[in-house]
């Protein structure tokens, strides 16, 4: 189940941009698309751990800054031919405020694997 955390206002994130939410289980990247939808993914690319929050947002996708993998913001899935997935988290938008849903502590991965 989710715990919901208020993380700020939608305008704190630039359109086609991203900000980081720090959690005890690692950074979560929160993205805002051109059509003002907001998505959240774990801030680690499934390829070699690149910080997705530093990438370029286009459509409902993000391109990783390190080696240009492209991931779907909705699902965290890498776009073919690459294969991999970044954990995604639900985000709610209420009255311009953003709420991030994080899994209960127990079901979260406990430690971030070392960057390859």
């Amino acid at each position: 189940m989710y715990d919901w955390h208020e993380i700020g206002a939608i305008d704190d994130i630039p359109r086609l941009g991203s900000r980081v939410v720090q959690t005890p289980h690692g950074d979560v990247a929160v993205f805002r698309t051109a059509d003002d939808q907001v998505f959240a993914l774990r801030d680690r690319c499934p390829h070699k751990g690149g910080p997705l929050s530093q990438g370029i947002v286009h459509g409902h996708r993000i391109t990783c800054p390190l080696h240009n993998w492209v991931l779907e913001l909705e699902s965290g899935q890498a776009v073919a031919p690459d294969v991999g997935c970044a954990t995604h988290y639900p985000v709610r938008l209420e009255d311009g405020r953003l709420w991030l849903g994080l899994n209960n502590v127990l079901s979260l991965p406990t430690a971030a694997p070392a960057i390859a």
Binding site: H5, R19, T23, L100, L102
Partner: peptide, 11 residues
């Protein structure tokens, strides 16, 4: 400024 600061710290 937003580039260099996390949006939020939770937990």
């Amino acid at each position: 400024a937003h580039e260099f600061q996390p949006l939020q710290r939770v937990g």
